[in-house]
């Protein structure tokens, strides 16, 4: 099952639901992978505390011009749709940060003066998630050092976890983690998202955490999912962005459901819209200060709050039930 979580408006709780659904799925013993496609600001790792085992750079090929071979014909500049190539006084100038790596310039060059060299724009990080008991809630993070609860004893345990044994199958890996992370100053998220999506599992449950908004990075993240969950909040901003997200994402022809987070604040517009459009509401999660506090500390809500976990469990059951009713939507056995 490939489940994508998106939101339109930022800060509605998209990552919270992605993390909690992944957590609950893994706790049920399902082979589960959480994939963070919010590559500009990936946050799932804060909650899931993965032990990062592998880091793969993401690069796109950009042109390099051999001036000895270049005849200044200008064909490369003409084919480039991204204004990444210009000519100044018969000299070809490349703007690497504008290049999308389509390869058109190298193909069109009549003198083979253009070769392609990789340019790194981000990284894919892979890791294993250790499901400590409920007392191991906030194990400190190994690499990025932004742990707030520095004194937590679970830190050591996480860092010395026998990763090799885990991978060799002594203990079956059933919950793991992939995140795309865009380098600062880069502007193109899509190549990194595309790479992260290659890690979607064929079997088992993949949870794709999409970026906010409604433009190309969201589409790329959601494409190919079996089911889409849109997280919103019942405020005018939440409602407006939900409409935009639905308008965009319904074109992808993926069955979708809505989660209303911070239910109780705001007004009824979101509810009305969902019933008018026949969009199933998968859950209404109340606005409560205790939830905001657990979240603010970077903890997994369904590990800390049993009633929250029950709501996530029933949300996941509803999605699985809806998928099994889909006539042709479920391409693969749901929840195998």
């Amino acid at each position: 099952m490939k489940l994508a979580i998106a939101s339109g408006k930022g800060g509605t709780g998209k990552t919270t639901f992605a993390v909690n659904i992944a957590y609950v799925s893994a706790m049920r013993g399902e082979r589960t992978r959480y994939i963070d496609c919010d590559v500009e600001e990936p946050n799932g790792h804060i909650f899931l505390q993965p032990h990062i085992t592998d880091s793969v750079p993401v690069a796109i090929p950009i042109p390099e011009v051999d001036e000895a071979l270049c005849t200044s014909c200008g064909e490369c500049k003409r084919i480039c749709q991204y204004s990444a190539i210009t000519m100044i006084l018969d000299k070809v100038i490349v703007f690497p940060e504008l290049c999308h790596g389509c390869g058109g310039c190298a193909l069109v060059c009549p003198t083979n003066a253009i070769s392609e060299v990789p340019r790194e724009m981000g990284v894919i990080e892979k890791g294993i998630i250790h499901l400590a008991g409920s007392d191991g809630a906030s194990s400190a993070q190994s690499a990025s050092g932004d742990a707030i609860d520095d004194s937590n004893p679970v830190q050591e345990q996480t860092e010395t976890m026998p990763v090799v044994d885990l991978q060799a199958g002594t203990e079956k890996v059933f919950f793991d983690f992939v995140q795309g992370k865009m380098n600062i100053k880069e502007s193109l998220a899509v190549p990194i998202i595309r790479k992260a999506k290659e890690y979607v599992l064929d079997e088992g449950v993949s949870i794709v955490d999409a970026p906010p908004g409604t433009s190309c990075p969201v589409i790329e993240s959601v494409r190919g999912a079996d089911f889409l969950i849109l997280v919103t909040e019942p405020t005018p901003f939440g409602f407006n962005d939900l409409k935009l997200a639905v308008e965009t994402l319904e074109q992808l022809d993926i069955p979708m459901g809505i989660v209303i987070n911070r239910y109780g604040m705001g007004n009824e517009e979101v509810e009305k819209f969902c019933s008018e459009r026949g969009l199933p509401i998968l859950g209404r999660f109340p606005f409560e200060r205790r939830i905001a506090e657990v979240y603010s500390r970077g903890e997994i809500l369904s590990r800390e709050l049993p009633d929250y976990r029950e709501m996530i469990e029933s949300l996941l059951d509803d999605v699985i039930a809806m998928l099994s009713r889909q006539p042709s939507g479920g391409k693969r056995g749901v929840g195998d």
């Binding site: 600001e41 946050n43 932004d146």
Partner: peptide, 17 residues
């Protein structure tokens, strides 16, 4: 920004920019 762990993380990236 907001006082959450996610907020801290995202702020660092945006300030670098």
């Amino acid at each position: 920004t907001e006082p959450t762990k996610s907020g801290v993380h995202d702020l660092e990236r945006v300030l670098e920019l």
